[in-house]
């Protein structure tokens, strides 16, 4: 039994290094990695990269030059990100210097406490209150010590432009979706429905509420509203359903936000 598991683990590690994984494969891989801690998530990445370069070296057809307009785009995008980081550092420095002066520190603390108290009162009714969602999302991010944050991946080409992420706290049973690039829906015909995957507790994904897209081109924030208590969210998904949503979906997933491999991780 154990050797079969190991075979499966090796297969999944190869899949991980060679092609996009499905959500189910990801979940299975993470389970097996816990059983075999001597292996790591990126076991075959190095050798697959070297093999890739080897094939590339021997391919006589495609060794073309990076077009100059794309090179300029790359350099400009790096400059933009770099300058943003510069301002962040400056703001941090400013905050640090403010907090060296006790009077300022007390004043800011009192103001923040008052502001936070008001936002927490709003937050308790957040399901029906769409005001201040960015602030509420920020509060959840700042106050949760079990926060998870996953990016969205599109599962259908119509939603390839959709971007964003989810934040969720199991302890607080609260979370928010941030998303842009979704097509507008007619709420009388169909609605987007959120699903929470909690495989340890539920066989079926849990309904996380429905929402509509009324504008395009802007990030929108939507509160997740679970219909059942969530013990350990492993992923999130969005489907298109009839108005009001359904209890169990038979529709295709259009977007998923799985647990495995957040964008920022590279274990080299």
């Amino acid at each position: 039994m154990r050797s079969l598991d190991k075979e499966l683990l090796l297969d999944l590690l190869v899949v991980q290094s060679t092609q996009p994984m499905s959500d189910d494969e990801n979940i299975e891989l993470q389970r097996l990695l816990k059983e075999y801690p001597e292996y790591n998530n990126y076991e075959f990445d190095e050798i697959a990269s070297l093999a890739h370069m080897s094939y590339h070296l021997n391919d006589k057809r495609i060794h073309d030059k990076l077009p100059s307009d794309i090179k300029s785009k790359i350099l400009n995008s790096q400059k933009k990100i770099d300058s943003l980081s510069f301002y962040k550092i400056k703001i941090n420095d400013l905050m640090r210097s403010l907090f060296y002066k006790p009077a300022y520190a007390w004043a800011i603390t009192v103001l923040l406490t008052i502001g936070l108290s008001f936002s927490m009162i709003e937050f308790k009714n957040y399901e029906n209150n769409f005001k201040y969602l960015p602030l509420k999302r920020g509060v959840l991010q700042l106050t949760s010590n079990d926060l998870i944050e996953y990016p969205w991946y599109s599962k259908e080409s119509d939603f390839a432009l959709a971007k964003g992420d989810i934040v969720w706290s199991n302890k607080s049973q609260k979370g928010f979706i941030k998303i842009s690039g979704m097509p507008i829906n007619d709420p009388l015909q169909k609605q987007y429905q959120i699903w929470i995957i909690d495989p340890i507790k539920y066989k079926q994904p849990v309904d996380g509420g429905v929402f509509n897209i009324k504008i395009v081109g802007k990030d929108i924030i939507i509160p997740i509203n679970p219909k059942l208590p969530i013990s350990n969210a492993k992923g999130f998904a969005i489907t298109i359903e009839q108005p009001g949503g359904v209890v169990v979906s038979s529709q295709n997933l259009i977007l998923t936000a799985p647990e495995v491999r957040p964008e920022s991780t590279f274990t080299l």
Binding site: S17, Y42, D45, E46, A48, S49, H52, M53, F266, L268
Partner: peptide, 10 residues
């Protein structure tokens, strides 16, 4: 080059 290509592949 390996480091660069690993990130590129990922």
């Amino acid at each position: 080059v390996t480091f660069v290509s690993m990130i590129a592949r990922r």
